[in-house]
Structures are given as structure tokens and as C-alpha cells.
Design a protein around this nucleic acid. Structure first.
Length: 488
RNA sequence: GCCGCGUUCAUCUAGGGGUCUAGGAUGCCACCCUUUCACGGUGGUCACACGGGUUCAAAUCCCGUACGCGGUACCA
């Protein structure tokens, strides 16, 4: 077995899609597991859809996820260049061979002529007729002299694959098993466009061969194109790589994860958007890995390294998968809990500072320590802004439930006792409250809940007395008195 | 329309002829822990698309139907 060489081959037509990242991940995992090579190839053969900066986003997204590239346009490598727009001579060479051997031909039809042909041939039973090479303007129907004349006159033309009729193409997909197509279903695919650039099909086959790719792992949307590719490999005399077509990622409602329904469902589609939403790369990777794959046992928490150890193509499923933001949120919380408090603080800092201004590192770490079990996203720590500034509002529902007629009086009394405390610790603040409860003959809950509301503005949070310690004596007393006054 | 792929709890999935009164995870619900909220723990809710076959035995194999998805471009 030759060493595994896989590639991720996106088109630079926009921001990297979450499904694209999963495809890249599975490729990377196979390469990493086997000690193989992960190649990044940029498929920029459609200049009309090219988007400036797209390659940079693809690279940034892969880097964010931790998917290191072994060979690529920046990394270099023995099979470059790695952008298809820089490899046109190679495609030309392949096309010349096909032309010389008669497995491809020149076609001079205008788009209008093709459109007219389709309309002429279309029936109810066959709304999308294939290119009818016998009646069109091409090197099969034109004399050699005429072809030469048109070519030399610079008349625009394409090169089409001469697909044989009545043949059966069978191949084995690593995920789906044996798949069979009739060549009668395959159109005379354009290989070289009139602008001289190759189509996906040609470029893909030439590059996968030239780059010695051993495994093509890509989305299921390519499954129907495989016969074309097999025919091309055959015509070129090359051995096709192993193929694995991944199940598609669907929206949570089951439909296609289009930009539009993603927006209405509130699902980020671009990798960038996940990053911006505050998800940890480890969580996204873990979540994505499980969208169509599982290790076969009951483990669920993985990082890139353990994923690579456990990975195998055989364990990839074959049915489409709906993504679940709930599961991502859970993974994120789990990964957060595996981090040190310092790491959490570092990640939360931008969000916290956006809310309350610069904060001291030791303070932030202390807050992170207290709140870590309660976080879904690191940036949620900003919701605990009360550690850094006095609350300006009080939670409506909490007030309704916890703020009773005697609350203002009890809070004020606790403020008095708190103000007199010589030391400000968990033990001292708690003892002060217990003493007050006893002195007043009031239940502990009558005091602790209103105090939490007064100090934090919310009815949820970490242990009350740990919270008080971090808030500090002066601020605590100030907040208690203010709440007693304003809330009555 | 045609071709291809798919179909186990709401979701991700295990399972691939008997061990399945179908297991795990997320979500949801309840209880425990906790005078808060979470975390954690325990329990519960929830599925083999349908119809035929094959077999002593089918979630598992075969056929059909339904449904979903993909493809059917000088887009990838």
C-alpha cells in the first residue's frame, strides 16, 4: 500500500462552509491516522465565481480548527502548483492526448445553439436531454478542414468527452459499496471551456492523478459525477483513486442547509460564523466529527489527536445528517470544562472587557473559577458583569418570586452587619447572615435570595458567599443599601 | 421526468439473522444533590418508514412502494 495522500479541494467562491470543514476534517483524520499527506488544492477554474480573499478564509478556518496542511500553495510541495489556475498546461496536455486518441472532440456550438437543441429534444419524459453530438457543430460532424479553419480563425470552442453508449460503469465507494451507472446517463461532458480553463471534472482527474492522491473523500453531491471521472481515468490510462462519498449535512429541519434557511433557523453556515459566535474550535471539531461518523463505542469526547487514532472510513455512515445546535452547545460546555480556569479567562476576556472595560487578570481568573461550571460559551462569562460593576437592573421574574414585603428591611439589616465585618470571607459573610436570620426569626431563604438579587441583579449564579467575597465588602454594602432603597 | 444514494427515538447514532421486552449521547420531564442557577447523579419520555417475500427465526437478507436527499451546466 502506497502512503495515503488525500486532498481538500475547495473552490474559492466565498467563506468556507461548515460542511466543507467536515470534509476537510475527515480527509485530515485519515492522513493523520495513517501518517499520510494532507494536500490543500484550490479549485479556481471558474473565474466568474472567484472571490477575492476566499482562499485566505479557507486557510484561516482550517488553521482555526487545527487542520495542518502538508502540501499547498503556501506550504509548497513536490506536486505544485496547488492552484488550478496555475496548472493549465497540464490540462491542455491531457486534452491534447484525448483529442489525438479520439476520446474527446472539439465543439463549436454557441450557448444559444445548445439551448435550442435542448428545447428541440426535450420531452415530458426527458426534460433534460444530453448533448446530441450527431446533430451539433463539432469535430465529429464537421470536416477536418472546416475544423481546422474554425480553429485557426479563433472561433470559440470547447472540448467534450466522447462518452461511449450502452456501457455500464461500476465502481466501489468506500462508504456505499458497489455503485453502477449506465453511460447512457452521462452527458458528453465539457472538459475544456471556451476560455481555455478546464471544468471541475477534467481538472479534478488530472490533478488527483498528478498529485498521486490515493483517497478522494468528498461530499455525496459528487457521487453522480463519478462515472464521468471513471471514463476520464480510463481514457487517460490512469488508475482511479479510492473513493468515499460523505453523507450530506442537512439543516435541523431536514432540508438542505442553504444560506437562506440557515439564516431563518439561526444556524451559522460559515466556519467563520461559528468562531464569531464564540464556539471553541475543539468543540466544533468534535461535533463535526460525529456528524456522520462514530467510533463504534460509547466515547464521545474527542480532540483532533484522539479522533485521528479512532478514525476509520468504514465507520462513516451513509445517510444525510441534520445538525443540532443543542449538541454543539453541549460539546462546547464539555470542552470548556476540560480547560484550565486561566484558559477560560483568556477566552472570555474580550467579551467581558467589551462589557465592563479593562479587568484585572487575577480578578477575571477568580470569576472564571467560580462560574466555569455554568458556562456554555466562554464569552457567557460577560453575563456575570456584576462581579465588576453594580447591577443597574434587577431580574423581573426573580424579583417577583423572591422579593417580599420584608426583603428591603432584611437586606438593609444585612448591609449593616456586613459593613461591620472585620474580615471579608466566605465564613464571615455566611455567619453574619445566619446570625441575622436567627435574630430576626426569619428563614435563611428570606434573606439570601433578596441579597443575591440586590448584589447581582439576578436570581442565578455561583455560591452566594463566594460571590460576595469576590464582589468585595464595600461594593456589597453599597449594592445592598441601594437595592433596599430603590426596591422598597 | 430520468439516474443515483439513503431511511433505527425529535436529533446524532450502536446494532448487520437468534444475546433486541433495540443500547449510548443530545434535547425534554421528574427526582437527588444544592436554601439560587448550573454542574453532577438517578430515573423517565421517545425509534427499527410501509407492504410483500426468504428463514425454525428478520431491525438485520431480497423485492416493491412511499418519503427524503443528490445529480441531470462552458458551477464546483
Amino acid at each position: 500500500m502506497p502512503p495515503v495522500r488525500v486532498r481538500f479541494a475547495p473552490s474559492p467562491t466565498g467563506l468556507l462552509h461548515i460542511g466543507g470543514l467536515r470534509t476537510a476534517l475527515y480527509n485530515w483524520l485519515l492522513a493523520t491516522k495513517t501518517g499520510g499527506t494532507f494536500v490543500l488544492r484550490i479549485e479556481d477554474t471558474d473565474q466568474s465565481r472567484f472571490v477575492e480573499g476566499a482562499e485566505a478564509d479557507i486557510r484561516a478556518s482550517l488553521a482555526w480548527a487545527g487542520l495542518t496542511i502538508d502540501e499547498g500553495s503556501v506550504e509548497g510541495g513536490p506536486h505544485g502548483p496547488y492552484r488550478q489556475s496555475e496548472r493549465t498546461a497540464l490540462y491542455r496536455e491531457a486534452v491534447d492526448r484525448l483529442l489525438a486518441e479520439g476520446t474527446a472532440y472539439l465543439a463549436f456550438d454557441t450557448p444559444e445553439a445548445i439551448q435550442a437543441m435542448r428545447e428541440r429534444l426535450a420531452t415530458k419524459d426527458n426534460p433534460n436531454p444530453r448533448y446530441d453530438r450527431a446533430t451539433m457543430t463539432n469535430s465529429l460532424t464537421l470536416s477536418a478542414e472546416e475544423v481546422q479553419r474554425r480553429t485557426e480563425a479563433g472561433e470559440p470552442h470547447v472540448v467534450r468527452l466522447k462518452v461511449p453508449e450502452g456501457e455500464t460503469v461500476t465502481f466501489t465507494d468506500l462508504i456505499r459499496g458497489e455503485v453502477t451507472f449506465s453511460t447512457d446517463e452521462v452527458d458528453d461532458q465539457v472538459l475544456l471551456k471556451s476560455d481555455g480553463l478546464p471544468t471541475y471534472h477534467l481538472a479534478n482527474v488530472v490533478d488527483d492523478h498528478d498529485m498521486a492522491i490515493t483517497h478522494v473523500i468528498r461530499g455525496e453531491e459528487w457521487l453522480s459525477s463519478v462515472p464521468k471521472h471513471i471514463l476520464l481515468y480510463r481514457a487517460l490510462g490512469w488508475e482511479p483513486p479510492a473513493l468515499a462519498h460523505l453523507p450530506l449535512i442537512l439543516a435541523p429541519t431536514g432540508g438542505k442547509l442553504s444560506k437562506r434557511n440557515a439564516d431563518t433557523l439561526g444556524i451559522p453556515v460559515n466556519v467563520h460564523a461559528y468562531r464569531d459566535a464564540g464556539y471553541e474550535a475543539e468543540a466544533v471539531v468534535n461535533w463535526l466529527a460525529f456528524l456522520g461518523w462514530n467510533p463504534g463505542d460509547e466515547r464521545e469526547m474527542f480532540r483532533l489527536g484522539s479522533l485521528a487514532d479512532a478514525f476509520s472510513i468504514e465507520r462513516i455512515g451513509s445517510s444525510g445528517v441534520q445538525l443540532s445546535m443543542d449538541k454543539l452547545a453541549w460539546f462546547n460546555g464539555q470542552h470548556l470544562r476540560e480547560m484550565t480556569t486561566g484558559e477560560i479567562a483568556r477566552r472570555a476576556r474580550p467579551a467581558v472587557e467589551a462589557r465592563v472595560g479593562a479587568v484585572d487578570d487575577a480578578d477575571l481568573v477568580a470569576v472564571a473559577e467560580l462560574m466555569r461550571e455554568r458556562l456554555t460559551l466562554a464569552k457567557d462569562l460577560a453575563d456575570a458583569a456584576y462581579f465588576f460593576e453594580d447591577p443597574t437592573t434587577y431580574d423581573e421574574r426573580g424579583l417577583k418570586k423572591r422579593w417580599k414585603d420584608d426583603s428591603a428591611r432584611l437586606v438593609a439589616l444585612y448591609a449593616d452587619r456586613a459593613a461591620l465585618l472585620d474580615e471579608w470571607t466566605k465564613a464571615s459573610t455566611e455567619a453574619a447572615m445566619r446570625d441575622l436570620a436567627e435574630a430576626e426569626g426569619a428563614g435563611f431563604g428570606r434573606i439570601i435570595h433578596p441579597v443575591r438579587l440586590a448584589v447581582t441583579g439576578t436570581s442565578a449564579g455561583a455560591g452566594m458567599f463566594e460571590t460576595l467575597v469576590l464582589v468585595g465588602q464595600e461594593a456589597t454594602v453599597r449594592r445592598l443599601r441601594r437595592a433596599a432603597e430603590t426596591l422598597g
